[in-house]
Design a protein around this nucleic acid. Structure first.
Length: 386
DNA sequence: AAACTGAGCAACCGCAGTCGC
DNA sequence: TGCGACTGCGGTTGCTCAGTT
């Protein structure tokens, strides 16, 4: 560890703050195609004016297809509590035992909800270690943490839950659990984790930072029925095809110069003001990306067969499909999103003219569906996804 | 209706650990 | 062995929004 460590990036040259949809798309598209073997180099290769750490964080905590969004379930909350009791502020380890949850998310939930809820209880008891804080976490089953924390029932009868926390009552048990977690990191320690398999490094699988590599993830997320597939965190992206996403494990090793990197202007256009107008008025640049042109301007704008082939290839590779309807405008950008000032997403992502075979329901939802398929390995993936 | 306040959460910061040269 | 590069982790910050006054 040397002193005077150089900063990870030139902070005057990188964009900071909330991510914009265009940035997300760039990052997703890049990682889908090339993975993320080198976070430091990724932003440049992907045409992002972001620090590599920022890209990594964004991917891990928000963009990954297997990130579970939404409120924590009662079971998850109970798991967090007892895992925190056993492991302390080892958020990544806790996250490794909560599939679909990130360390950052768990940390936030703990700091904002669970800690506050448990604090008064601990104060009223002689010893936090000897207490049974979990016993207070016994509301009626609910999928909403909001309802769960809407009231206190310190003395309420404990209902049977999937996680009987009695097993964590004494220190010995706590230690044994902790030991087991460490020792059996390649095996599972609880039923709720039974469907998670270990990663090759010997630690359990999670969305935590140290498990962020898709290679690992690909080994843990099983294909699920449509309704069980994890929703994309991005409303405008709809659902990922997680299974296909996992094909990244087979991505070629050679990487890493993104083919379109020289066309940085293209990506920049996405971020620039009046992006649509820019595209429309600059066919030369668009010519490099007929598929994009197709998406943005409508299929009728792409006349030649080659461009259509490009379109097909792009759709195969990136699976950018969908439409954005005015009625769904409000769903397009999540809160806190960095909206680029003059970027009209409704226009920029007007996919109405794209005739894609997909369920009508998805059309109605107005999703831009971004499912991954890795043409290097499986050119038919997109067919399977539809 | 406007101002204030606090909660929630995404993102950042900086240190630690690991690896390769 | 020492050093630098890189990634991971945990703490912290700051923005947004909903609720309250």
């Amino acid at each position: 560890m040397g002193k005077g460590r150089a900063p990870c990036c030139d902070k005057t040259q990188v964009k900071r703050g909330p991510w914009s949809p265009a940035e997300d798309l760039k990052l997703i598209a890049f990682i889908q195609k090339y993975g993320h073997e080198n976070w430091r180099a990724l932003p440049k290769q992907a045409g992002l004016l972001r620090c590599g750490k920022s890209c990594r964080l964004r991917w891990i905590n928000y963009l990954r297809p297997d990130v579970k969004r939404g409120n924590f379930t009662l079971e998850e909350e109970e798991n967090i509590i007892r895992l925190h009791k056993a492991l302390g502020n080892k958020w990544s380890k806790i996250a490794s035992r909560l599939p679909g949850r990130t360390d950052n998310e768990i940390k936030n939930v703990w700091n904002t909800h669970l800690k506050k809820r448990l604090a008064p209880k601990k104060g009223s008891e002689s010893s936090a270690d000897e207490s049974k804080p979990e016993s207070s976490i016994t509301s009626a089953s609910s999928s909403s943490s909001e309802s769960f924390f809407s009231y206190e029932r310190p003395n309420s009868p404990k209902t049977t839950t999937p996680c009987n926390n009695d097993q964590f009552n004494d220190q010995a048990e706590k230690l044994s659990i902790e030991d087991k977690m460490e020792q059996d990191s390649e095996k599972q320690v609880s039923n709720e984790l039974a469907n998670i398999t270990e990663d090759p490094k010997g630690s359990s699988v999670s969305l935590s930072s140290d498990e962020s590599n898709i290679v690992n993830t690909s080994q843990i997320v099983e294909h699920k029925p449509e309704e069980e597939q994890l929703a994309s965190p991005l409303p405008y992206l709809g659902h990922y095809d997680v299974g296909s996403m996992l094909e990244e494990v087979d991505k070629p090793n050679q990487l890493i110069e993104i083919p379109w990197e020289p066309d940085y202007d293209f990506w920049k256009l996405l971020d620039d003001d009046n992006s649509l107008e820019s595209f429309q008025s600059n066919e030369v640049q668009l010519g490099e990306f007929p598929a994009i042109q197709n998406i943005i301007l409508g299929e009728e704008s792409v006349h030649d067969a080659e461009a259509k082939k490009w379109s097909q290839d792009f759709e195969n590779e990136f699976g950018v499909v969908g439409e954005m309807k005015e009625s769904n405008k409000d769903h397009f950008l999540p809160k806190n999103y960095a909206v680029e000032p003059e970027m009209d997403h409704t226009q920029a992502f007007d996919f109405d003219d794209i005739d894609m075979a997909r369920p009508e329901s998805e059309l109605d939802l107005g999703y831009i569906q971004l499912w991954s398929s890795w043409p290097q390995n499986n050119n038919n993936n997109n067919n399977n996804s539809l």
